[in-house]
Design a protein around this nucleic acid. Sequence first.
RNA 1: CGGGGCGUAGCUCAGCUUGGCUAGAGCGCUUGGUUCGGGACCAAGAGGUCGCAGGUUCAAAUCCUGUCGCCCCGACCA
Length: 629
Amino acid sequence: MQFRAWLLRRQQLQGRRRRPAAPLPQALAGTLQNPYKHGHGFNGERMYWSRTLIPTSREVPADADILSHQLMVRAGLVRRLSAGIYDWLPLGWRAMQKICGIMRQEMSRIDAEEIQMPAVVPAELWKQTGRYFDYGPLLFKLKDRKDAEMILGPTHEEIVTELVKASVSSHKQLPLTLYQIQQKFRDEARPRSGLLRVREFIMKDAYSFHSSLDSLGQTYHDMFNAYVRIFKRCGVTAIPVEAESGPIGGDASHEFICPCAAGEDVIARSEDGSYAANLERADRQIPADVSFPIASADVAAQLQRIHTPGAASMEQVCAFLHVASQQMIKTLVFARSEAAGGGFVVACVRGDHEVNEAKLRRLVGHVQLADDAAARAAGFVIGFVGPHVVNQTGAQLVIDPDALAMTAAVTGANETDYHVTNFNWINHVEAQHRSKAQVADIRNVVEGDKSPGGSRLTLDKGIELGHVFKLGTKYSKALGAVYLDDKQQSQPMIMGCYGIGPGRIIVAALETLSDKDGIVWPVNIAPFEVLITPIRYEGQAKTVADELHAQLAARGVDVLLDDRDQRPGVKFKDGDLIGIPLRIVLGEKGLATGQVELKRRTSATPEMLPLENLADRLGKIIDEMRPKV
RNA sequence: CGGGGCGUAGCUCAGCUUGGCUAGAGCGCUUGGUUCGGGACCAAGAGGUCGCAGGUUCAAAUCCUGUCGCCCCGACCA
């Protein structure tokens, strides 16, 4: 390197070091109206583009096929290291930290206290609750040097229960709510959809402990409201829906779903807005007086047996016989667990419907789709089963009302490569089995079904952002977490758990709010609130840019200065891509008249602002942009 | 786990069918110059064990076998 160049470089570096440091957040706390004054998230931080890492890209990454994933990589938020494993780069990490800051504030409001539990935990605890086996291959497992089995925690019910068990022994110490924001590990069979389903992710998980169901209900209610506030402040849509609730039942579980096409969950909502539930949970209105229908006289009473070689699936049979799936009865054979009484359950739904296992389980106890070999051994010709199989096997029969209403159905013949037509319940299922049959809603709802309140249901895909859940005593009983009540009786603690995936909030924001030019951050989770873009970072523009940079930071605004020696077009394109809510453009024309240009990311046209009190003015604009909660 | 696709420069890709000279393009990067309000231009450069291993062949990015990794659909899954 030439000496002059070396000297110049050295002077530049020294110049950098002499630049005054940004003021400490504490110095500002009392003077400012901003949402991070509790010391979480950021508080008037400033950064120079040239000194941080924002690897933007014009190219769409080849391994990203959903919008949020493409944007996260193109805008330099994340980088994939392995399947479902990502680096978080400065911009993405800042957004994450802001979300975490909001969550901390809202947890604090409802008296939940933050803790930090280990990511590496002994497998033994997980064996005690049975989840070591329930989770199976989803667990990351490892051994320490003494050959002790450890796992990387996918969630922390066991650990927090163990903690509280050791430290709480009286009802006077309850209720208690603890939470953490921590790394989780799940060895997903198939990580997918970019940052939506990953193997290592951050989760805010809260756990509450109670001495009464009323107390649990109160905390559940508080947590529910805190979640509503969190999502609103983050600027993402999150619809609370009823979710599968396990043993406690009732209103014991809600998910917060952001409707969008990239989502993996399906939710059902009524058009009158009074009902929303996860598809797994969604109920429908069924007539009160369902009974076995009498086939009309023009339907032959005899089954018509038809050779359907190799056609064992619904589509194959429909295509082979040229019938619509609505004319068919789908008959599925389930095996009931020994604990629930054993035996087989035959579930019948209309051909175009799907059995909902959760509904079936609520009705008949724990079942799962029967093992092929076991079912065949018991006389079920898998692939060609019809409802009348119960005549031979005596299995329990469960019929969905829509299947029950059919009087000339096509269904399996109970022999290989044969189906039957003209099936009807009265003629072909023996009376003794009809009388024992249960008729109930056992299928997934479909678009157009009636909600329990009678309004029309619609279905949408969505991203699960959060989940609140009444756990009951499952973990406290398994791990012996008990307290002494006011009558000196030992009682298992009643628990609730509550999770939010901040990474998914980012995904949801990008999926639902971006435009063709890039990200459009909601102000509260934007990595920076203001982007200063001098057309050329020199002369008066540089002076004004630096001053504004410092003033905004001093006022508590997070601000990024694009000090790169790049052409304006490059800066504008990059600015749009990374989606900072407000952009201040400093150009010669405006500065000559004492004005700067304000371009909102959400607006196509800029507005001119005078230089006087610019930082204050911008601060107010930002405050106005924040969602009111 | 079943089905499909893909691994060549930091990124996006061509070359492979039909083996053959020093492995290419665009973007990005470096240096110099001209530019400078929506991803500039000129010139000169740096950068690749063609995922890895083995095999066939005089010769392999190219053909064969194995293996690892990644993406998509499904199964599974809070």
